[in-house]
Each structure stands twice: as C-alpha cells, then as structure tokens.
Design a binder for these strands. Structure first.
Lengths: 293, 293
DNA sequence: TGTCATGTTTCAGAAACTCTGAAATTGGGT
DNA sequence: ACCCAATTTCAGAGTTTCTGAAACATGACA
C-alpha cells in the first residue's frame, strides 16, 4: 500500500500535540483510529517514529520524517487550493505573485484594468519573498511573478522590467534629509541605521562590510517604515520602496553608491488562460516604472 | 471530502493516455473504477476536466489542473522516497546534492572517508542543476548541497567553499592549446565555440553579448566533453570542470576575462544526523579545492 | 441514415479499508 | 509497588472503493 496524505497529517498532528488524545481531538477522530494509522505508518516505513509509547518524544527518524511531512502537507494544500481557485473561475483566473515593494505599486493599476476590461475574471494577488514567488511559479500556483532576482526556471520566461537605484530612505524631518551637498556611504552608516532584507541585495563590498556590523535588522517592511517615520532612523532601500507610504518619508541618492536593483517579470510559458495573462503583462509593462539611469 | 493523491494519479494517467481503458490498464484498475474516481474528482472540483466524453481532450481547466497535479505527484513521490531512505538506514543517512562539475570532484573522497569512518551509514549522492539542488535542500531531500549560486534559504546556512576562474577548455591538440602568448576573449569566439549551461554564469558584458550569437548550445556535460575531445571545438568553463575527464583536455586562462565563479556549501541547520553531516562538511572543506586568486 | 466497433457510464454487490467504543495493557510518576 | 492517565487491541459497524455486467454514447463507415 502507498502512503496517504491523511496518514502524514495524523503523524504531524501527533508529533505537534505530543500525545494521541489531543491530536485525535484536533483531527476529529478517535484515539484508537490515530493509533492504528500511526502504527501502520511506522510499519510500512519500517522504523519507529516515537521514542516512548506516550508519543511525546520523536526518534531521530521521526524528526526527519516530520520535516518532510510538514513540508509535503503544506505543498499539497497549496496545490489543492490552487486547483479550487482555478475551478471556481469559469472566466479564468489570473494569479500574480510579487515581492512586496513592487506589489504595492503594480497591483492597483492591474486590478483596475482587469476588472473593467475583463469583468468576471478572477484575480488572485499575493506578495511574498523572492523564494516564495519562484516556488509559486514553478509549482503552477501563479501565472505571473515579479522579483528582483534573475533565475532560470523551467517553463517560465523572464524579462527585465525596470531598474532603480538604492538610496537613503528617511523621515523628511531628519537632518540628512535637508542637508545640502551629496550624501555618502559614510554618512549613511554614521546615522542610526536600520538593516532590512532588501539592502542585503546591494552588490557593493563596502556596504556589505558595514552591514554586517549593524545591530538592528527588521524583516517587516511595515514596521520598518514606522520606525523611519518615528524619527531619526534611516535605511537603504530601492527608490520605489520609498513610495510605500504616502508622505513623511523622502529618498536621497548616495553619491558613492552606484548600486541598483533590477526587477524581473516572469511568466509561465504554457498557461492556458493566455489572453488575460498577456493583457496583464502589457499593463504591468506600461506602468510608470522608475526611469533612473 | 478531501482530495487524495491517488485521485490525482488517476487523472494524470487518463490525461496522458487520452482514454480511460489504457489508463485503467496502467493503473491496474478497471475502467469503471477510474471513471467513477474521475467523475467524483470533477464533482468536488466543480468543473469539467475533459471536453469530450471520450477523455481525449482536456478543458482549459483540465490542462491547468494537470500541470498542478503532475508537479504535486512528483513532489509527493520524492518525499516518500526520502522518507523510505531515512527509514532504511538505522545508522543514519547522509544525502548530498551537488552540481555535476563539483560532484565529480567532491563525491569520491567523501565516500571514501565516510565508508571507512562511519561504516553502516548510508550515503546518497546526486548531481543536479542549481535549482534542483536548492529544491532538495528546501524540501528536506538533502542534508548538504553544493552550487555556484548564493541564495538565502530558510533553515539552511550557506558558506563559501571555493572560487575558481573561468577559462578556455579544449583538446590538447587544438591550435590554441599550445599557442604561445595570452589568449583573449576575441580568440575564444574566433574559434569554433560551444555554448554550455555553466558559461551563462559568466558575469561579463562582452562575453554575454557574444554568447547570444553562438549557435551551438550543449546542455549535457558528457557530450560537451566528447565534442571537445573530438577535435577543434572549444568552450568556456570553470577550471575544475576541466578535470572531469582524465586526459586529452586542457585549461587555459583568458587574459582579459577576470570572471570567476564562487561555489557555496549549504547545510540544513536542524538536521538530526548532525555528527555525520558535520563530519562530511569537514571532509569537503578540507579537499584540495582550486586555489586560484 | 443505419450499423458497427469502440469506448464510457451506471449499477449492485463484493471487497477493502477505516472508524468506533469498550476492554485490556502499558509506562511513568509518586 | 501502586495508581492513573494514556495507548493499544479487537471485533464489529460504517465508508469508501473496486469489480463485472449491462446499458449507453460516439464517431466511422458504408
């Protein structure tokens, strides 16, 4: 007999709960059902998954299998959801995944255009990190992807979308915001600097070196911007990211930092809802992207 | 009711076969069983998957679902295989995925060391392209990965392994092999040039430009090397790739091409078979890697 | 247009699998 | 050594899935 997703689910539930009864309750089954399922799983696998009989400690094998199982379940659920989305849209679906900084700028006009030009078409948008965007493209969860990394993916074509400089983002009231004369890398790191995920992409030895000394690293863009608005913190971002909030922030080029980021547009090559995808691509390309350099 | 992997398998088989009977034969079931499974699948999905009643033409939805389903099945099977591998090795498993050029050099000593130092430990090696190596790491299919791209992966740490120059690889009998004086990019593309997957990684505008004019692109390293050994073809490769065959080929630096490739070693952070992994990492790092520049 | 060959759906019963509830058992803590 | 909480076991009930036969659809061909 072959493995079943439901078996993996049972195993994960027990591993997470630390005992059978709670897991069984969560799954809406009886203890005994879960017990039998697990026993059979261990049997077909040919090794014990738990140390004790009370299921509160995993064996080495159990830990490794748990990682695999959880990842597999997540994958499966995403696939199922993608299928249901496709099925629930008789007129077709357009699924776009983009990194947040671009998503904020690109999604509104795309939505506006599609809802008027293709009424009835279902639109699904998500912002995610670069890796997740690539995953979504590769797994068929998205038709269009936008990231700032170039990568060759099977069945996906990549084209350059725009290029923009990195620079200093800070509150309008910050001293550096209004200071006359050019701003240098030295100035940047002399200020109270916040590190963020995007600035790790900067391809400049001096910056990379100094970044490793920075203590405050923020992953979430929302709170990053909140910090900047607060007062005297600064950070490095590509210029379009500065548009994320309406007012209060400003962007300044760094005179001795030529670093840019190149943003790419990805498109699955063999999607069937071809016309809508092509149309959306056109809209995206026609947007008023930063024209620097 | 939730979807089952077996349902997806049935659907894919029918979609590939173009009719129920053949698919049923492949799956070892009756037509009617498959028919009912499919019918239920379409019902829970809420849309038709086939145009005609004869199942020989997919609907738009069907095509999209097919892509998702095939990818999902492949994923699932790999996960199952990984679980079985883990379970079949009571003393632990070490799974390494590397790009071919590095694999050829790194695998033999690693195997030699582990089989003597850790008898009974199961070793699983595979060479794959960069994307597949990252997939294997992310999905928990491999403990160690080696590629020539830097990428931040969740739950995986990256460290630089070595750095080596790109250069000309060609037969020892080729005119350029013995010619005195430095070889330039111009010389390279004046010869009969074979493009390959690795040389697309070269970060040099002039080379990239010229590469796009090259007509012959070989994906398979084996046959690439065969072509080089044949006679007067040449190609650009990182120097360690030239060691892939014993004799007959030679490597020469290009005077005006400073391009290098940096190779990285990836390691899952929370693997449970920690000691063996750490040991293998040590062996890999201690190898006599190219020491250029 | 009618007929045939091929392939699909439907259906009822059989087979396989999974679940439940109660009783037996186990193991860890005191 | 005992007790309590939790797990395993087991037989029967409940579901799901399969099969084989018969009815039905489709397209090709005369």
């Amino acid at each position: 007999m072959t493995f079943k997703i439901e078996t993996l689910r049972s195993f994960c539930a027990v591993a997470r709960a630390g005992n059978l009864s709670d897991a069984a309750r969560r799954l809406g089954r009886t203890q005994s059902a879960i017990s039998m399922t697990l026993k059979q799983f261990e049997h077909t696998l040919g090794g014990a998954l738990f140390e004790t009989e009370r299921k509160n400690r995993l064996t080495k094998l159990g830990e490794q299998v748990l990682l695999l199982a959880e990842s597999q379940i997540a994958q499966f659920d995403k696939t199922v959801q993608a299928m249901e989305t496709l099925a629930s849209a008789p007129r077709g679906v357009l699924r776009i995944a983009a990194v947040p900084s671009v998503a904020a700028f690109a999604f509104p006009p795309v939505v506006r255009h599609l809802t008027t030009q293709h009424p009835g078409v279902k639109i699904e948008l998500r912002d995610a990190d670069t890796q997740q965007v690539f995953d979504a493209l590769l797994q068929g969860w998205a038709d269009i992807g936008i990231t700032s990394a170039k990568r060759n993916l099977n069945g996906v074509t990549a084209t350059a979308l725009f290029r923009e400089p990195f620079g200093l983002v800070l509150s309008e009231t910050h001293a550096l915001a209004t200071r006359a004369g050019p701003i240098t890398i030295h100035d940047v790191f002399a200020a109270r600097f916040l590190r963020n995920g995007l600035c790790d992409q900067i391809d400049n030895p001096e910056v990379l070196d100094r970044l490793s000394d920075v203590d405050v690293n923020m992953r979430n863009t929302q709170s990053l911007l909140a910090m900047l608005l607060e007062g005297d913190w600064v950070t490095l971002l590509p210029c379009s990211a500065a548009r994320l909030v309406g007012t209060g922030l400003t962007f300044r080029r760094i005179s001795d930092l030529p670093a840019h980021r190149q943003v790419f547009l990805y498109q699955r090559t063999e999607p069937s809802s071809a016309r809508i995808v092509g149309d959306a691509i056109d809209v995206i390309r026609a947007l008023n992207w930063p024209g620097y350099d």
